[in-house]
Design a protein around this nucleic acid. Structure first.
Length: 436
DNA sequence: TCTGGGGTCCTAGGACCC
DNA sequence: TCTGGGGTCCTAGGACCC
């Protein structure tokens, strides 16, 4: 059965907000001495995660390696990414947006959609004017700049925000859509990746306008649902709603860690794996989820992954109960003499703990004991930082980290900026309660 | 785009049931 | 025993996103 598409009869006003060089901008906002200077983040992984506009002006782009950065721009300031701080900026940005409209979708750490439909009268100005107020408020209060796109659909609002950066403000009225799509390469449209672009090329479609102007029959014949939706959106018919719910559910939770140099040291690799498992489980418990499957893998030097999936006899989010399975899985995939560059863990088949029932043969006393232990561990982590208590299995990771001096020069000024806020409150997370 | 870390949704096909 | 029709659940793999 064909699902009818929800088409809205009058045009919506959707805004896309995209922070400019977000990570680098946060660093410059916190450290005034970095303003006006080429700043790059991504030290911990050896490639550029974000580059300030001063760095971009010198030719530094996302993804290039740090030794190249040093060649191109020796004066560049290279910092490790500090996600915790960036999250705080992110939360504040979303809070500002909610002052303008309740319909805010937190799309990623540095992007959001806001539905302003119907708010013109309230603000006594055009949607463009409201967007401008949003832009100014963020800059004034957070010290970072954003680029904004305004249009009648999410896809078009995204197109608009990409048009001018940094500090851009672009409005695409329904009547001018073609002007903006005519020179836009199809692969730059949100939702069209390299594979689909290549297929479209075969039909002679190169620009977003070529695609938008294709017939519905053609689009339905050759493309699946997501692409049909993009096609409608490019034509100004809104099918993607702005979804205001904040994330409180996951299909899967994964944790991976890459290390240099690659190694075949068994103990070290297993410790990394165990640490990933702890991290993934901690996150699962925070969202009160338990996993039915555990997938673990190791990435070889050639970037091929080898892993196994383990079906758990009882859903859980407690490493203690998973360590045995982890060890077995690890034995299956580990090959001595092979160099690995990363290990990873995925918890999937996630269901709410509340839906759990005790099996006939489960040892309830034992289970409750485990729950108690982790309640204490989570409490300590809350107060004193993560991994205050960790498994013996992952302890050698700790030693390794000290050795490497990881995260040695994390900025400390954020404490001043955000003092008085407990981390969980700052991140807007529910306080953990483990049902027994 | 030479490769970090974390996600989502869609489709097809098989297993199984009535 | 054969046959038809229809439904649900699950999984693997692909494609895409930041």
């Amino acid at each position: 059965m064909e699902q009818p598409l929800t088409l809205h009869s009058w045009p919506k006003a959707i805004v896309h907000i995209d922070a400019d060089a977000f990570f680098a901008a946060c660093e410059q906002a916190i450290h005034p001495e970095l303003r006006g200077k080429p700043v790059v983040t991504g030290k911990e992984r050896g490639i550029v995660a974000a580059a300030s506009y001063e760095a971009k002006a010198k030719g530094i782009t996302r993804g290039i390696r740090l030794f190249e950065v040093k060649k191109i721009c020796p004066e560049a300031i290279i910092l490790p990414s500090d996600y915790e701080t960036y999250s705080l900026f992110s939360i504040r940005m979303f809070a500002i947006l909610r002052r303008f409209s309740p319909d805010v979708e937190e799309y990623s750490i540095d992007e959001a959609f806001v539905d302003l439909t119907g708010l013109r009268r309230l603000y006594q100005g055009s949607y463009g004017k409201i967007a401008q107020q949003i832009q100014e408020t963020i800059e004034k209060e957070l010290g970072i700049t954003v680029s904004i796109g305004v249009s009648v659909t999410k896809v078009l609002a995204k197109v608009a925000s990409q048009t001018r950066k940094p500090r851009g403000l672009t409005v695409i009225p329904g009547t001018d859509i073609h002007l903006f799509l005519k020179d836009l390469p199809i692969e730059e449209v949100w939702g069209i990746g390299p594979n689909t672009a290549a297929l479209l090329q075969k039909f002679g479609i190169r620009t977003a306008l070529d695609f938008a102007r294709s017939s519905e029959a053609f689009v339905k014949k050759y493309f699946s649902k997501p692409y049909q939706e993009v096609w409608h959106e490019l034509n100004g018919r809104s099918v993607y709603p702005v979804v205001p719910e904040t994330k409180n559910d996951y299909q899967s939770i994964s944790k991976t860690k890459t290390f240099t140099p690659p190694t075949d040291q068994k103990d070290f690799l297993f410790a990394q794996m165990a640490r990933n498992l702890e991290n993934a489980c901690t996150k699962a418990r925070r969202y009160e989820l338990v996993a039915r499957r555990l997938f673990l893998y190791m990435r070889r030097q050639d970037f091929n992954d080898f892993g196994v999936e383990i079906r758990l006899t009882r859903p859980t989010a407690y490493p203690m109960e998973l360590l045995e399975a982890l060890r077995e899985g690890f034995q299956q995939i580990y090959r001595p003499g092979t160099l690995y560059r990363a290990t990873g863990v995925v918890l999937s088949g996630l269901i709410p703990v509340s839906s759990l029932q005790f099996g006939l043969f489960d040892d309830r006393v034992q289970i409750e004991r485990i729950v108690q232990v982790y309640r204490v561990i989570d409490g300590l982590a809350e107060k004193f930082g993560k991994h205050t208590v960790h498994h013996g299995a992952s302890h050698s990771v700790e030693l390794h980290a000290q050795h490497e001096g990881e995260r040695g020069d994390i900025p400390t000024r954020k404490r001043e900026l955000f003092k008085g806020e407990n981390k969980r409150q700052r991140l807007g997370l529910p306080v953990l309660s483990v049902p027994v």
